[in-house]
Every structure is written in C-alpha cells, then in structure tokens.
Design a protein around this nucleic acid. Structure first.
Length: 479
RNA sequence: CGGGGUGUGGCGAAGCUUGGUAUCGCGCAUGGUUCGGGUCCAUGAGGCCGCGGGUUCGAAUCCCGCCACUCCGACCA
C-alpha cells in the first residue's frame, strides 16, 4: 500500500511520538509558524481564523451578560505593578521590561503587561465613587507577554492572544456569582462549540492565581491523557481594591471597598482543541469553530459540466450560511482529499459525472471517514445535520476518553502506579494541606488539577497523610 | 535554568570521522500527460551549509563562543 503510506508519512503517528505529532499538526495544517525570536509564534491565517471564531462566540456571550470591551495600555509602570504584593511576586519572574524610550533611559521602567489587573485597578480608582457606578463589567481582547523559559505552539507562547475580563462589584456574593457565571461561559464554549468535555472545579491555594482569593478552572483531558487548563476565573475579594485605593460610597453614605474578579481564556485552547480531536491524518476541527466547515471538490473536473455542478453546490451551501470553500485547483482527487483531512475540514462534498447522473453528491465526514451519498435536493439539510453529527461524535469520543481515564485511588502508591501505567485524572480524597500536594508532586509527579464542583465521597481520610479528608480532588500531569 | 538531541535551497535528508565552496527526494515554475484517494514524463529556477570568531593556502567538514528548535527535568495560572 505505497499510496496509503504516502498519505500519512507527513505527520508522525501520535502513538510513536505525541509531541512530534502535535508540532507536525500545528505546522503542516498551516496553523502556526516559528519566528526568529524564541517563544514568539505566528498565527497563520488558518490558525488565526480559528481564534477569530472563538472570539466571535465568546464575545457574543460576554455581551449578552452585560460586559463591555475596553482597551488598556500595553505597558505597566513598575510602581503600579508592585502595589499588590502576591500579584507582583507571582508575575515578576516572567516580566519583560521596557527601559528605554528611543535612546534615553526611562525614569521608571515599564513592564510589558503579563496580565492587566493593575491597570484596571488603577483606572477604577479614578472613576469609581458611588454604589451607582457598580458593577463594572469589562473585558479586553489583547495580547500579553510572559517570559517563559520553554515554549510550545499554542500551549505556551511568550506572547499570546487572549481575552481578560475584569469586573468590580459592590458585594462579595455578586463578585463570586460573576466568577462562577464566567467559568460556566467557558465551559459552554468548550462543550457546545469546541466539543471538549471539561471538569469544572476550584484550584487549591497552591495552584491559584497570584493575588486571588479563589480560582475556578475548567480542566480538559488531552488525547495523551495529560491535563490542560482550558480557562480560569478568579475572585479577588477586596484585596486589590484596598491595595489600589478603590472605594465607593454605599447607600448609607459609608465608604466601602468593592470586590473584584478576573477571568481569561487564551489561544492555548487551540492547542487543547488539536490534542483533543486530532488523529494520525492531522487536524480534526469541530464544525462550529472550523474556518471552513465544508469543502466542495469537483471530481473528474475536465468532464463536461462537473465544474459548474460543483460551483452550484458551493453557491447553495454559501447561501445556506455554511462556511464553505470550493477547490477547483488542478490537483488530483487524492491529493485534495488528503489535504483537507490534514487541515481538519469537517465535511468534504464531492461531485463527479456519476453523481450528476444520479442527482447526488458524496459527503465524507472527517471525524469518522464515513461516506454518504446525498440527493442533491437534500444538500443543505444534510450538510447542516452532518455538521451537528460531527460535533456530537467528537464530543462523545472526547467524553469517553475523559471518563475512561479518570480513576479513583486510595493511596499515594496506587495513584502513582495508575498515572505511570495509564495516565489521566486520578481522583482521591484530600485533607486540604499543602504538604500533601507537595508529596504528590514529588513522589507521583502529579499536581492537583482541581477540586471538582461535583464531589464524590470516596473515603473518610486523605490517602497521603491519613488525616480526615475535606474534599475529593483531581490529580494529573498538566501541560 | 540544568541534562540530552538537532540545525545543509520552502520541507525532509546525504556529505563531516579521513578539509579542496555541495548531492538526493519532495515541493516550486513551464510544457505535455493523467484525473472517483497524494498521476506520470521532460525542462528549469532556487543554497552567505543557524550566527560570530579561530586554525589553514583552502572550512558544511577541525576548534571556541553564541543563537534557535526539540525532548526530559526545574519553573510557570
């Protein structure tokens, strides 16, 4: 099967080398390119189009819930960054600094934003006076810079695109509700748009965001059973407000400190998408985010009428609101088939002379490889139906991977053994002590992923120290 | 940041041990051919051999330094 071999030799099999497979997909599906600066990546048009679709979905959801977009500066004066102690300690090691303007040294150096809490707080300290000013529900789409030591396409860039929401509320209850609502928005995006099942939960104190009182997370499981944090949402209490002198006068004319949240989701989720759905033929894109949902390919294009028939299908699908492309290039049928498989296009719509006689076309699904013949009269309805089926199929497959590789464990040794032999999420009870997290990291190589919202009672005691258990917790090896 | 690997036209590689300015496949361009799963043939274009320094009459090749990518750790939402 020389031809069969040739189709897959461009991409390393994931069973052979998952990391190589991943970078092969990123570069060969034309999502990303490397640059001459370490850790800085180019999102090529096809990769950026995925981000644009994620933006579109998320932005609509944010606006539905009353959020507005703003644009903050890229540079943060050092003095501003240092106002909140925990925050600066968390981020200082990975800040990049602007020290010169032109040839002149700056009076105070400026940090290229690693995140913008301090900028929002400084701004709010100027504009917030009354309870009538609250809540403030802000979001910005931007890039941030963190001087990471190691980098990988999508998963860890030094500069990456994201959105960061920042909100300010009169009460703790309201702020916490906001934090939970936004986490649910991320979960909705993952499950209903990206076809990625998630585990919703809370981070331990060790793993929470620098300066946060609470951090919520959605945790995803990749095809290699490693964990990826898909999005996070933080409740800050009034710590930042106090550090930055944000206060408002309440209805009783008393001065109060407002409560703050922030939440973010980045292009990292695209890495998650790739590692959740991809296969040995390349990228597999969930239909609701795919830049191209269907590609029309004329077969035996030189034959009379074929091209016109294909163009007809293209126009009909376009009119039906499908993101559709037609490939009338001179490449052979086999080349085109392999190409669009590698690029993860959910449906391939083929039409040739034999189909034309029978008034049908052939539709091939990327997720399963299954081919169906569809009467031309039913084109639009079938494409819409198949796109939904592909979404559901991808979700179910990923959900099965998550369910099949989440294991309870009742001792550190057992947890370690399961992780080494099978990978995935290990769930255990936990006493709540940092020391047990450190032990798990040292002895089993795992970090806590989250304390899931949906709890189970597996035992009465922490399997690491034997003290009474407070929660069930998920462990894993994370990206 | 520590340890390993890699760096040669766009991509993948050979050449390096035993120095003499470069080879192959894919891709690309043109023409023809083929077209229901990566057609075939011909002709052609394209390379400061990662960067900098050293040794030498002469360096892709030997020596030193640096950079990038990559894997494993540490670190990191």
């Amino acid at each position: 099967m020389a031809k069969e071999k040739k189709q897959v030799e461009q991409i390393t099999d994931m069973e052979v080398d998952f990391a190589k497979w991943y970078t092969d997909v990123c570069t060969k599906a034309e999502l990303i390119d490397y640059t001459s600066t370490k850790g800085m990546f180019i999102l090529r048009p096809y990769g950026y189009a995925i981000w644009e679709n994620i933006q579109k979905e998320l932005d609509a959801r944010f606006k539905e819930t009353g959020h507005v977009n703003v644009a903050m500066p890229m540079l943060i004066p050092e003095s501003l960054l240092q106002k909140e102690k925990d925050h600066v300690e968390g981020f200082a090691p990975e800040c990049a600094w602007v020290t010169h303007g032109g040839s002149e040294k700056l009076e105070e150096r400026l940090c290229v934003r690693p995140t913008s809490e301090t900028l929002f707080c400084d701004h709010w300290s100027h504009i917030v006076h009354s309870w009538r000013d609250l809540p403030l529900l802000y979001n910005q789409w931007c890039s941030v810079l963190r001087w990471e030591k190691t980098s990988r396409p999508f998963l860890r860039h030094r500069e990456f695109l994201w959105q960061e929401g920042h909100t300010l509320h009169a009460t703790a209850e309201e702020a916490i509700a906001e934090t939970e609502q936004q986490l649910e928005t991320y979960a909705d995006l993952c499950e209903n748009v990206l076809a990625m099942p998630v585990v919703r939960g809370q981070k331990t104190d060790k793993e929470k965001f620098a300066g946060a009182e609470r951090t919520y997370t959605i945790e995803c499981m990749m095809h290699d059973r490693k964990a990826l944090q898909g999005g996070t949402s933080h409740y800050f209490g009034d710590g930042f407000a106090k550090a930055f002198d944000i206060s408002y006068t309440d209805k009783e004319n008393k001065l109060q400190a407002p409560h703050e949240t922030s939440w973010g989701l980045s292009t990292r989720i695209i890495g998650g998408l790739i590692m959740t759905h991809g296969d040995n033929r390349g990228l597999v894109l969930p239909p609701r985010i795919a830049p191209t949902q269907a590609v029309v390919i004329p077969v035996a294009m030189h034959k009379e009428g074929v091209l016109a028939a294909a163009e007809g299908l293209y126009e009909r699908l376009k009119a039906a609101g499908i993101r559709v492309k037609i490939d009338d290039s001179e490449q052979s049928m086999g080349w085109k088939a392999a190409e669009y498989e590698m690029k993860g296009v959910p449906l391939r719509v083929e039409i040739g002379p034999k189909d034309m006689e029978k008034e049908q076309c052939c539709i091939c699904r990327r997720d399963s490889g299954e081919k169906v013949f569809v009467p031309l009269a039913e084109l639009e309805t079938e494409v819409v139906r198949l796109l939904d089926e592909v979404h559901n199929g991808l979700y179910e497959r990923a959900a099965k991977n998550l369910a099949d590789h989440t294991y309870p464990a009742f001792s550190l040794e057992e947890a370690k053994q399961i992780q080494e032999e099978k990978g995935g999420f290990i769930k255990t009870m936990w006493c709540g002590e940092l020391q047990c997290e450190l032990d798990m990291k040292e002895k089993a190589g795992m970090t806590s992923r989250c304390i899931p919202f949906v709890q189970e009672h597996l035992a009465d005691t922490c399997p690491i120290c034997g003290k009474p258990a407070k929660h069930m917790i998920y462990w894993g090896v994370a990206y």
